[in-house]
Deep mutational scan, measured.
Amino acid sequence: VVEKVLDRRVVKGQVEYLLKWKGFSEEHNTWEPEKNLDCPELISEFMKK
């Protein structure tokens, strides 16, 4: 389960987000493609920053 979106990048035309996973430490954060995500409210919250 995604706890928080930390960053955004574009790699080869694909948007990816750096995710903080609930119950895991920062060392387990991962970059995931936008198309694989199902957390629009967290993405929206990140984009407001």
Score class of each variant (00 low, 15 high):
34 E>Y: 04
11 V>L: 13
7 D>R: 06
45 E>M: 12
19 L>K: 03
11 V>T: 10
35 K>R: 13
15 V>E: 07
5 V>H: 00
14 Q>W: 04
16 E>G: 01
27 E>A: 13
1 V>G: 09
17 Y>G: 00
32 E>Y: 15
47 M>Y: 07
5 V>T: 02
47 M>T: 15
29 N>I: 07
47 M>V: 09
40 P>D: 14
34 E>D: 04
2 V>C: 13
10 V>M: 14
44 S>Q: 14
46 F>Y: 13
20 K>Y: 02
42 L>K: 10
41 E>H: 09
11 V>G: 05
37 L>V: 13
10 V>L: 14
20 K>W: 01
7 D>S: 09
22 K>Y: 06
12 K>F: 09
4 K>P: 00
23 G>F: 11
29 N>F: 06
31 W>K: 02
34 E>K: 03
7 D>C: 04
27 E>R: 12
10 V>D: 07
37 L>C: 14
24 F>E: 08
17 Y>M: 03
36 N>D: 14
35 K>S: 15
18 L>P: 00
26 E>Y: 10
29 N>T: 12
46 F>M: 15
46 F>V: 03
4 K>C: 03
20 K>H: 07
21 W>F: 11
30 T>R: 10
32 E>I: 08
25 S>Y: 02
11 V>S: 10
38 D>T: 12
4 K>I: 05
20 K>F: 01
28 H>A: 08
35 K>E: 13
41 E>C: 10
24 F>H: 11
39 C>E: 09
13 G>A: 04
40 P>E: 13
7 D>M: 04
47 M>Q: 13
30 T>K: 11
39 C>V: 11
47 M>E: 13
4 K>H: 06
45 E>N: 08
35 K>G: 13
25 S>Q: 05
42 L>A: 11
43 I>M: 07
38 D>G: 10
25 S>M: 08
24 F>V: 14
15 V>I: 12
14 Q>V: 12
45 E>V: 08
32 E>F: 12
10 V>R: 07
20 K>E: 05
22 K>C: 11
18 L>F: 12
34 E>L: 06
23 G>Y: 06
36 N>G: 11
5 V>S: 00
3 E>F: 03
46 F>S: 05
12 K>H: 09
5 V>N: 00
30 T>I: 04
49 K>C: 15
31 W>R: 00
40 P>L: 11
32 E>R: 12
5 V>D: 00
17 Y>L: 06
48 K>A: 15
47 M>L: 12
20 K>Q: 10
43 I>T: 07
44 S>Y: 09
3 E>H: 04
38 D>A: 11
31 W>H: 00
12 K>Q: 14
43 I>D: 01
27 E>D: 14
43 I>H: 00
6 L>D: 00
18 L>K: 09
8 R>K: 12
9 R>P: 00
29 N>S: 13
14 Q>A: 08
46 F>D: 06
23 G>V: 02
10 V>Q: 15
28 H>Q: 12
38 D>N: 10
17 Y>F: 10
44 S>P: 05
48 K>C: 06
25 S>L: 06
3 E>V: 04
23 G>N: 14
21 W>Q: 04
30 T>W: 02
43 I>K: 02
5 V>A: 02
19 L>E: 00
27 E>C: 10
13 G>V: 01
45 E>L: 07
10 V>N: 04
34 E>C: 06
19 L>R: 01
40 P>C: 11
10 V>T: 13
43 I>F: 03
19 L>S: 06
4 K>A: 09
3 E>I: 03
26 E>F: 09
3 E>A: 05
10 V>K: 09
31 W>A: 01
19 L>A: 11
21 W>N: 01
23 G>L: 03
1 V>D: 03
45 E>Q: 05
39 C>Y: 05
37 L>Y: 04
5 V>R: 01
30 T>C: 07
21 W>A: 01
26 E>Q: 08
24 F>W: 08
8 R>S: 11
13 G>T: 07
34 E>H: 07
9 R>D: 01
40 P>H: 15
15 V>P: 08
20 K>S: 10
20 K>G: 06
36 N>S: 15
20 K>R: 10
26 E>T: 13
44 S>E: 15
20 K>P: 01
24 F>C: 05
41 E>K: 13
35 K>D: 12
19 L>T: 15
28 H>V: 06
43 I>C: 08
16 E>A: 04
41 E>S: 13
45 E>A: 05
32 E>S: 09
6 L>G: 02
6 L>A: 09
36 N>V: 13
10 V>F: 14
36 N>F: 08
19 L>M: 15
38 D>K: 09
46 F>I: 03
30 T>S: 14
32 E>L: 14
19 L>G: 01
24 F>N: 09
18 L>I: 00
11 V>I: 11
35 K>F: 06
15 V>T: 14
23 G>K: 05
25 S>A: 09
38 D>E: 14
16 E>Q: 15
12 K>D: 14
24 F>Q: 15
2 V>K: 03
34 E>N: 01
48 K>I: 06
44 S>T: 14
26 E>K: 12
34 E>T: 04
33 P>V: 12
30 T>L: 03
41 E>M: 10
40 P>S: 15
20 K>L: 04
11 V>Q: 14
42 L>Y: 07
11 V>W: 08
35 K>H: 09
37 L>T: 08
29 N>V: 11
13 G>M: 04
26 E>I: 10
1 V>M: 06
12 K>P: 01
32 E>A: 10
31 W>T: 00
36 N>I: 04
41 E>Q: 14
44 S>M: 11
12 K>C: 05
25 S>C: 09
32 E>G: 05
44 S>V: 12
7 D>E: 12
23 G>M: 09
9 R>V: 01
17 Y>D: 01
20 K>C: 05
28 H>T: 06
34 E>Q: 07
17 Y>I: 02
6 L>E: 09
42 L>G: 03
37 L>S: 03
41 E>A: 13
30 T>H: 05
35 K>M: 15
31 W>E: 01
27 E>S: 12
10 V>G: 03
12 K>R: 13
49 K>P: 15
21 W>P: 02
5 V>Y: 00
23 G>H: 09
6 L>V: 11
12 K>N: 09
7 D>A: 15
39 C>F: 04
4 K>Y: 04
18 L>R: 10
26 E>R: 10
21 W>M: 05
29 N>R: 07
42 L>C: 05
38 D>Y: 03
4 K>S: 12
48 K>R: 08
23 G>D: 15
17 Y>E: 01
3 E>W: 02
47 M>H: 15
45 E>W: 03
27 E>Q: 13
8 R>A: 06
26 E>C: 14
49 K>D: 11
22 K>S: 11
16 E>V: 04
12 K>W: 07
42 L>E: 12
33 P>N: 14
3 E>M: 02
43 I>N: 01
47 M>R: 11
15 V>A: 10
39 C>M: 07
45 E>F: 09
34 E>I: 06
8 R>N: 04
5 V>W: 00
15 V>D: 03
6 L>C: 07
32 E>W: 12
